[in-house]
Every structure is written in C-alpha cells, then in structure tokens.
Amino acid sequence: MNLTFDFAFEGFRIIRERPKLIAFWGAITLFGYGVMSLIMVHVAGPQIMAFVKMIIAQADTGSAGVDQAFMINISQQILLAGLMCLPVHVVMTSVVLGAVCRVAFGETDDRLGFLAFGWQEIRLIAVKTASLAVIAALFLGVALVGTMAGLLIGGANSQAATGLQTLGVIAGLGAAIWLSLRLSLNGPHSFDSQSLNIFGSLAMTNERFWSLFTGYATATALAMVVRFLCDKIIEAVQVLSLGLRVTGDMIMPDMTSIVSFLTPASVIALALTFAVVAPLMAAIQLGAPVAAYRALKGRTPVRKVKEEAAR
C-alpha cells in the first residue's frame, strides 16, 4: 500500500470529531505529567535551577567556562530523575495510545473516552519498554564505538578523541532516530493483532523512511504550534486571574523545592497545560503512527465508511 501524507493529520481529525476526548485523556495526562513534574522537582529541582542560573550568568558576562564536577553532578541528578519518570511516562503514553487505537480502528464504546487498562494496555507497555531498551542500546553502542575509536587513535585528552566522541554521539542519535521511526508502528500493530510484536514494524516501514519521517516531522511541528498558541492563552489566563505581569517565571517556575514550585501561577499553568494541551499534543503525535499503520494495512478510515454509508 502507498502511504500518503494524510496520516500526519489524524490527531486533528480525532479531536475535531470527538472533542470530549480531551476531558478524558486530559485526566490521564494531568495525573501522569503531574507526578513526573513532582519527581523532577524533588530529585533534580535544585540542580536544574543552578544550571539555569549558570547559563543566565554566562550570557550576562559573556564567559563560557564550565565547572566539570558541577556539570557531572547536575547530569547525574537529571538522569536519575528522568529514569524515575520513565515508567510513569511509558504507562501514561501506552494507555492513551490504546484509546487512540480504539478510535482509529472504529470501536464505538466511548463511555470513558475509549480509555481502558487491560491486556491491550499491558501489551503496549511491554512493546514500548522493549522498544526503548533496543533504541537506547543502539545509541549507546554507536556512541561507545566513537569513544573507543577516539581513545585508540588519539588518547584520552587529544582533539581527535574529543572529535570522535562527538561524532559518535551524533551518529548514535541518528541511529536512534532511524530505529525509532522503523519501530514506530509496533504499538498499533501489537494492538491490532493482539500479540506482542516488537519487530514486525520493520517490514512495514521498509523503504518508507522518508514518507514516515516527513509525516511525523509535520505532526510534531503542528503539535509545537498548538503548544505555542496554548501557552499564550495560558499566560493570558494567569494575567487575568492573578493580575500578574508576563515574566520568565511563568515559563520557568522556581524548582528549588516543591513548595516554591507549586505557586498559584504555576499550578494554573501546569493544570491547563497537562489537562488540555497535553492531550491535544498526544492525539496529534500518537495519531500519526496509528493512521500510518492503518493506511499500510489497507484499512478504510472509519469516517470514510460512514460517509459512504450515508450516501
């Protein structure tokens, strides 16, 4: 089957036809992102704020020096916080993906916004976890090759070693993006076949890299536009409800502690972002691979079936 560019807009169609899904999916994203935000603040909040202050100070003074020990500490805390957030993100994304699959594949029971938690969601969690593990292993493997090549050729402190390490990281990122795209259909595939199918996506995406890449890039860009516009609306709500001036604190709240993080302005912004903006972005970004899978499988979109029946 040919893959048309139309799949990139599936998320917009879903929300346009069923706007009430935002309320149901927003409850899931509000809880998930809320928990992840608290984890980030508790585990790495002070380090994140110290890093932001360092960047601002360097921009003001024009200096570029970095304390290596300081950066290592920041990186370790942020990595730890990210790893603690990862299970929450995987579960949340898998539950919403299951709902998106039900909408796109034509199920009609939308009492809870197509949300459920059963074997399908457990299967999606397993597929997502396995995919992330494989992608991370590929990235680390390619990056490690660059590091080892630099050490063998120029030694630990040479410019050649630094250059090859950087090249290895860039190549690793490229390989990770390539594999992410090639595995992007394994969630919808596993949902549709009701089986754990991690690598079946490779055959479906063969020779379709650029078609998928263009569609996903478009969906991501549209999601960023939606996020930008919604952020401006949220800022207006903060100004009107609390009488605040538009400042950088609205965009970057104080993460030094949970108490300083949960100010009225921050709570309003987080609640609106996680409950309204996040489900919109999830529909756009998760809807694209589901629609791509449906197109490659030769399924007729549900809306077209209804249009033909109405005629």
Score class of each variant (00 low, 15 high):
Phe274Lys: 04
Gly174Asp: 07
Ala116Gly: 03
Leu179Cys: 04
Ile14Val: 13
Met71Cys: 07
Gln238Ser: 03
Asp254Thr: 00
Gln238Phe: 02
Ser184Ala: 05
Ile74Lys: 06
Gln159Glu: 15
Leu144Met: 15
Ala156Leu: 14
Ser184Phe: 00
Val66Thr: 09
Val277Ile: 00
Leu242Ala: 05
Ser75His: 07
Ala161Gly: 08
Leu272Met: 08
Val103Cys: 01
Val237Glu: 02
Ala137Lys: 06
Ala23Met: 11
Leu21Phe: 09
Leu30Ala: 14
Phe5Trp: 14
Leu240Cys: 05
Gly154Lys: 03
Ile74Glu: 05
Leu240Ile: 08
Met204Trp: 09
Lys128Glu: 01
Leu179Val: 04
Ala310Tyr: 12
Phe228Lys: 03
Ala50Ser: 14
Asp231Gln: 08
Val88Phe: 15
Thr108Glu: 15
Gln58Tyr: 11
Ala217Leu: 09
Arg123Tyr: 00
Leu164Phe: 10
Gly45Thr: 12
Arg208Trp: 13
Phe274Tyr: 13
Phe114Val: 01
Ala44Tyr: 02
Met204Phe: 10
Met281Leu: 11
Asp109Ser: 07
Leu244Phe: 01
Ala57Ser: 15
Ile39Ala: 15
Ala50Lys: 04
Leu83Ala: 08
Leu30Cys: 13
Ser158Cys: 14
Cys85Lys: 02
Ile284Met: 08
Ile177Gly: 05
Ser131Asn: 02
Gly45Ala: 10
Val52Phe: 14
Ala149Leu: 15
Pro19Cys: 07
Arg111Leu: 04
Ser184Asp: 04
Leu272Asn: 13
Gly11Lys: 08
Leu202Tyr: 02
Val302Lys: 12
Phe9Asp: 08
Thr205Met: 03
Leu79Ile: 13
Gly187Ala: 13
Ala27Gly: 13
Gly26Tyr: 10
Ala223Met: 07
Gln194Arg: 07
Pro289Met: 07
Leu151His: 15
Ala81Ser: 11
Ile72Gly: 02
His42Asn: 13
Asp60Gly: 13
Asp109Pro: 04
Ile125Arg: 00
Ala149Gln: 01
Ser184Pro: 04
Arg102Ile: 02
Gly150Glu: 06
Ala137Asp: 05
Glu121Trp: 00
Lys304Pro: 03
Ala176Pro: 04
Gly150Phe: 12
Leu196Ile: 14
Ala126Met: 08
Ala8Gln: 12
Val226Glu: 01
Arg182Leu: 02
Gln77Glu: 10
Ala175Val: 06
Leu270Trp: 13
Lys304Thr: 12
Ile48Ala: 11
Ala203Val: 09
Ala269Val: 02
Met54Lys: 14
Ala59Met: 15
Leu212Thr: 05
Glu121Tyr: 02
Phe191Ser: 00
Ile28Asp: 07
Leu83His: 06
Gln194Ser: 13
Met224Trp: 11
Pro188Asn: 11
Gly118Pro: 01
Phe191Val: 04
Val226Ala: 10
Ala282Met: 11
Asp60Leu: 08
Asp110Thr: 01
Ile48Lys: 09
Arg123Cys: 00
Leu185Arg: 03
Gly26Phe: 06
Ala57Trp: 06
Asp60Ala: 15
Leu270Tyr: 09
Ala27Cys: 10
Ser193Trp: 06
His189Leu: 12
Tyr216Gln: 11
Ala130Ser: 14
Phe70Cys: 03
Val134Tyr: 01
Ala278Trp: 00
His42Ala: 15
Leu30Glu: 12
Val96Leu: 05
Ala309Glu: 10
Pro301Gly: 13
Ser37Tyr: 09
Gly98Ser: 14
Ser190Met: 01
Leu229Pro: 02
Thr300Gly: 10
Ser158Pro: 14
Thr29Ser: 14
Thr93Cys: 10
Asn197Val: 06
Val90Arg: 03
Met148Gln: 13
Gly163Val: 08
Ile234Glu: 04
